[in-house]
Design a binder for these strands. Structure first.
Length: 911
DNA sequence: TGTAAACCGTAC
DNA sequence: GACGTACGGTTTACAC
């Protein structure tokens, strides 16, 4: 059968632009995207199709813009470096002899859809070459998709495998999901899984809509809310198959290529391989790694149509000569990407299995050191290799690059190596560039910024029960995986660093906050905090006893046994068997058994109170007492948390394994957990926390006179607020009024409305409204500030902290009310939460620098507005003074930054 | 056996 | 639906 290849030119140019490094030729003209597209085109010819066409978007509006003015409204303008590559691309495409189709009023997709349909009807096999999943709707018996970026092809079965729906359901599938890039509305919270599930059940979008009432939960409500929008979404997602065209598929034979023009263009853009091929000369061999056994050489280069796969030569270094050669390369390189392979995700328990390095894109090596499996080849001695590398690793003036380098720093520390000079970390570069992106792990970054899918860890080490330690992974696979890690890290840096360089504010955040913080956090994690496991064990037993008693009583009361831990079973007993009133519902519409709900019915039955007590104990025991004891490192007797430096969108740190940032404090029983965080003999715990830091930042940012003077005057701000709102002298404010004022102060920072305040304080909604109105009347600057932030967020799509950290708000222009309102609340909160994060990070860097190498005082923990130290008793005063000075001085605001400090034998006492 | 979702609750 | 940012435990449903 004859074949037709339809190339989605616009899609490829755009993807190649984002996937490839920003190459330029000697004249400084951008060539990266061009290079990608040209290679793809040359490869497409190798299939020797009978017909071929290059289809791209014409300029000007299309019928979709008329249907829906907001279509693609979120698209940023095309970057100049990309725009500059369009004309050259068209010249090359023309010179290659490709028929070019550009039809105004429709998109390239529609032209492709029309041609594919016509060709298939005429018995021609069609391959649509595109990176766009929307095209899956065209797949049929004669039509397949091919994606040269991922080197995959898809027929109808492939579509079903990938999306879980058939090609003829793709339009409905896309309509349900919506598309944030094209700004097509869908069903909120409906992703591919949910969309596929519904379509599997009902078959079509129409049927899903007809049965919308049957779908439960929050997602069902979202679906019903979206019903009016969905027909429009479907129209937008539907590729037209009836565009009037001048050419029939059979008119699309390849024209004769213009060799002279190609030679001139290839030369100009420095596509040397293409130029050589043009002149029919063989390509030179790739540079091969020296002194490397051939069987360990891993070469990832372009295959038939995988031009955009990682290209490079990866060495597996197992002999001294090869290692020496690499050591020389590392010493000579201006920047070295380093990655460790280990036996554990926990750096405090991990042992080094191998090291990988990259010095330029495409040139990387893996040095296996402790692979141990039957038949494993001889490897270099780990201690000898580490000793040889130590000077380089410890030299602060040799710039190093990592992906999540804190992990590697901690691993090296276990071998007596203090890694210094980590100037670059691709994870943090990505985080500063756009903290809203949910994941900054290497696989996600490679996909996002390089358009490349890395070898998944699972693929070499397995997962779940079948997982093997990396030390048992065969050298050949281990090398491919590990060397790629270093290579990809380097390529990510080469992509992200120039981006950061275009935004001096973000660059400053990276250079003055995030990068210097890496070794500070690493030291805190390595140090760990001493835990009194005996105290925890005692408490755990007490809790277990009380829980058991409560459990027995609960069974007696209910007349049967059940799991007190199961909300579902509780719901059956409380609301079905006992018929207690339902006060709160969960987001899925079920009767809630949360604290608020149980509190509300506690006066009608004894079971709710009992459950609340049980829950409190169960939470403490499972989450804290038992968990902490379990996670104590047997080597150090301490818990070594991991701080997440690229998690929270606002710039805050997070903490896990264990999470030290949610240790209880509000109740007496909870504080016993804190009492188990102890100082070693001769030391004391010192806790220093910023007083009302976020409210102070609000005063600074808003410039509100009332709020400023409260802080400058050193007043109790909640009391002062109560005095203003209730029109009383401060000394006549009672505790209830102060509590209300505190709720207002905090609530406003989170964008809370009257509804929320009323609920929080248990008052009528109009009363809450009244409070808020009086607050804004008394603090007009705060209202103006909030209005301005909202406006700025809408205008720019992001908000900033005092130090220039940026938070993008993807939903700020959403048509969905809830999404948009949520984004507005986040916009209000982010400058305050984010600035507080910036300030304490700056303080940590300053305090760490001041403490230097002294071992009589060590910073252990950070809890958002608090730093915790262990300090030798004889220097407590000196340290307290120095810490206070540096924390207060971490920012110059319009109000003083007050720091409260306490000390004690344990964390609880230090408060 | 493993994963994801729902629910709940802790911190700042 | 109504208050921002996190982490994580238990139950439950479900795919493999």
């Amino acid at each position: 059968m004859p074949t037709l290849i339809l190339i989605d030119g616009s899609s490829y140019l755009f993807r190649a632009f984002h996937a490839l490094p920003p190459l330029t030729n000697a004249a400084g003209e951008p060539t990266g995207a061009l290079f990608g597209v040209v290679n793809m085109l040359r490869n497409s010819l190798k299939a020797k199709p009978d017909y071929i066409a290059f289809v791209c978007d014409a300029s000007g509006p299309t019928f979709r813009d008329e249907l829906y003015p907001e279509y693609k409204a979120n698209r940023p303008p095309m970057p100049e470096e990309l725009r500059a590559q369009i004309e050259p691309m068209m010249e090359i495409v023309k010179a290659l002899g490709f028929p070019i189709l550009r039809v105004s009023g429709v998109e390239a997709d529609d032209v492709i859809g029309t041609l594919a349909t016509q060709a298939a009807a005429a018995g021609i096999d069609v391959v649509v070459s595109t990176g766009d999943k929307d095209m899956a709707q065209l797949v049929g018996p004669h039509v397949t998709l091919s994606n040269s970026m991922t080197n995959t092809t898809m027929n109808a079965a492939g579509v079903f495998e990938k999306f879980g729906v058939h090609p003829n359901q793709i339009i409905d599938f896309l309509s349900l999901m919506g598309d944030s890039v094209d700004n097509i509305p869908g069903v909120e919270k409906c992703g591919p899984k949910t969309a596929a599930k519904w379509l599997a059940e009902y078959g079509t979008l129409d049927a899903v809509m007809d049965n919308a009432a049957k779908i439960g939960g929050k997602i069902g409500e979202n679906l019903r809310a979206a019903l009016p929008q969905l027909p429009l979404s479907r129209q937008l997602a539907t590729i037209r198959l009836d565009v009037p065209l001048d050419e029939a598929p059979t008119d699309l034979a390849l024209r004769e290529r213009d060799v002279d023009a190609l030679r001139r263009l290839y030369a100009r853009y420095e596509f040397n391989a293409a130029l050589k091929e043009l002149d029919n000369k063989p390509l030179p061999d790739d540079v091969r790694g020296a002194n490397v056994p051939a069987q360990f050489r891993k070469q990832t280069t372009s295959d038939a149509d995988g031009t955009l796969a990682m290209q490079g030569v990866y060495d597996c270094v197992v002999d001294q000569a090869a290692f020496d050669a690499w050591l020389e390369k590392l010493r000579a390189a201006p920047i070295v990407a380093i990655d460790t392979e280990t036996t554990s995700l926990d750096p405090m328990r991990a042992e080094i299995v191998g090291l990988s390095f990259a010095v330029e894109a495409g040139k990387a090596a893996y040095v296996p050191l402790a692979h141990d499996y039957p038949g494993a080849p001889q490897q270099l001695d780990r201690d000898a290799v580490l000793a040889a590398l130590k000077p380089l690793l410890e030299d602060p003036d040799r710039p190093k690059l990592g992906q999540h380098a804190k992990y590697d720093i901690n691993v090296f520390s276990r071998y007596g190596i203090t890694m210094r000079g980590v100037r670059y970390d691709s994870m943090l570069e990505s985080y500063v560039w756009n903290s809203t992106a949910t994941r900054h792990d290497m696989d996600s970054l490679a996909r996002r910024y390089l358009g490349y899918t890395t070898i998944p860890y699972d693929a070499v080490a397995g997962k779940g029960a079948k997982q093997i330690p990396f030390s048992q992974v065969a050298l050949e696979q281990a090398s491919a995986y590990a060397a790629e890690d270093a290579d990809v890290t380097l390529r990510l840096h080469e992509t992200l660093w120039p981006k950061l360089a275009t935004e001096p504010g973000l660059m400053r955040v990276y250079e003055t906050i995030e990068a210097p913080l890496i070794p500070v956090l690493a030291r805190m994690e390595q140090r760990g905090v001493l835990i009194d496991t005996n105290a925890l064990r005692v408490q755990s037993n007490e809790l277990a006893k009380r829980m058991h008693e409560l459990q027995q009583r609960a069974y007696d009361i209910a007349g049967r046994t059940f799991s007190l831990d199961s909300p579902k079973q509780l719901q059956a007993i409380l609301f079905e068997e006992l018929k207690l009133p339902i006060v709160v519902k969960t987001p899925t519409g079920q009767p809630s058994t949360n604290e608020e709900a149980l509190d509300a019915i506690a006066d009608q039955h004894e079971l709710p109170k009992l459950i609340l007590d049980y829950r409190g104990y169960a939470k403490l025991r499972s989450t804290y007492t038992d968990k902490l004891a379990e996670i104590v490192n047997p080597r150090t007797g301490r818990v070594h948390t991991s701080y997440g430096q690229a998690i929270a969108a606002t710039g805050r740190l997070s903490s896990n394994d264990p999470n030290l940032q949610n240790i209880p404090i509000r109740t007496e029983e909870g504080r016993r957990i804190r009492q188990a965080f102890v100082a070693p003999p001769g030391y004391r715990i010192l806790a220093a926390d910023y007083s009302q830091i976020e409210l102070r930042i609000m005063a600074h940012l808003s410039g509100d006179a009332g709020l400023l003077s409260a802080f400058v005057g050193g007043l109790d701000v909640h009391r002062a607020t109560a005095a203003e709102v209730f029109g009383l002298p401060p000394e006549q404010v009672d505790s209830n009024q102060r509590r209300a004022a505190k709720a207002i102060n905090f609530g406003l920072m989170y964008g809370m409305g009257a509804f929320g305040l009323a609920r929080q304080l248990g008052i009528a909604r109009n009363e809450a409204n009244d409070y808020i109105a009086r607050y804004f009347a008394r603090y007009p600057g705060v209202r103006t500030f909030m209005d301005n932030i909202r406006e700025q967020a809408h205008r720019d799509g992001y908000v900033e902290t005092v130090f220039g950290r940026r938070l993008y708000l993807d939903d700020i222009r959403a048509r969905n009310q809830n999404l948009r309102a949520g984004a507005e609340r986040a916009a209000i909160n982010a400058p305050m939460q984010g600035t507080a994060a910036d300030i304490i990070k700056r303080a940590m860097i300053a305090v760490d620098g001041w403490l230097g190498a002294r071992d009589d005082a060590r910073m252990l923990m950070q809890v958002h507005d608090e730093l915790v130290f262990e300090v030798r008793e004889d220097v407590l005063d000196e340290i307290a003074t120095g810490v206070r000075e540096r924390m207060s001085g971490a920012a110059e605001l319009a109000v003083p930054l007050v720091v409260d400090i306490g000390t004690g034998r344990n964390w609880d006492e230090a408060h």
